[in-house]
């Protein structure tokens, strides 16, 4: 389906995701653990997933990693590969949860995405380093995913509530319009908020 609104919406999301990706890389995390970050750019992916489904979610995630790494100057470096696999795996996990489960809220999905991101990264790091001892990092990364996922989930939830009042974000555009529900109505119906 080609649709100008969708094109513009995805472009804006990619731009926002790129900015978040780059800015987040500049903010130091006050923890002595390498690789743990907030995952702010994940929010943008989740919005794309919500609005247009898995394919566009992956598009936004991959495009923002590509652009972000070009701006940051780490394109094709090991860090870039880790970001890419992390972004793709988290997007896939969130897409699966959005599609096949209706008991999680945005917060839960965001949390699953954060943990999925870390797991994907860990796997990529293992393939890159060929060293099994990297899996000792598993519990650290699992636990790190919970607070960071909660944090971005809460931000996303309040963001969606505010954006809805402005009436610019069309979540589940076609479905919601055809059934005369507002996007928020549909999200509430799906138990996401």
């Amino acid at each position: 389906m080609f649709n100008t609104r969708r094109l513009v919406f995805l472009s804006v999301l990619i731009a926002m995701g790129t900015v978040l990706h780059v800015v987040e890389g500049m903010v130091p995390v006050p923890l002595p653990i390498p690789g743990v970050k907030l995952g702010l750019a994940n929010m943008v992916t989740l919005i794309a997933l919500h609005s247009y489904g898995a394919r566009d979610g992956v598009t936004v995630a991959v495009a923002r990693v590509l652009l972000g790494s070009l701006i940051g100057g780490v394109f094709l470096s090991p860090g870039f590969l880790l970001s890419l696999t992390g972004a793709v795996s988290s997007t896939l996990i969130m897409a699966l949860l959005l599609k096949y489960s209706d008991c999680f809220s945005v917060i839960g999905i965001s949390m699953a995405g954060a943990v999925g991101h870390n797991m994907g990264q860990l796997l990529a790091a293992f393939l890159l380093l060929q060293n099994k001892s990297i899996f000792f990092y598993l519990p650290v990364l699992l636990m790190a995913g919970i607070p960071t996922g909660l944090f971005t989930g809460y931000i996303l939830k309040s963001l969606l509530e505010r954006v809805e009042r402005l009436g610019i974000l069309r979540i589940y555009e076609d479905d919601a319009a055809s059934r005369n529900l507002g996007p928020m109505g549909l999200m509430k119906e799906k138990n996401l908020l």
């Binding site: 489960s101 008991c103 999680f104 809220s105 917060i107 839960g108 949390m111 699953a112 943990v115 000792f136 598993l138 519990p139 699992l142 636990m143 995913g145 919970i146 909660l150 138990n191």
Partner: peptide, 24 residues
Amino acid sequence: MTRADRYLAAGILLIAILSVALFY
């Protein structure tokens, strides 16, 4: 935050603790 979210967080935490125990 729904009940399922809490279960998810608890599940992840449990897996983390189990893996620490396994490594130890």
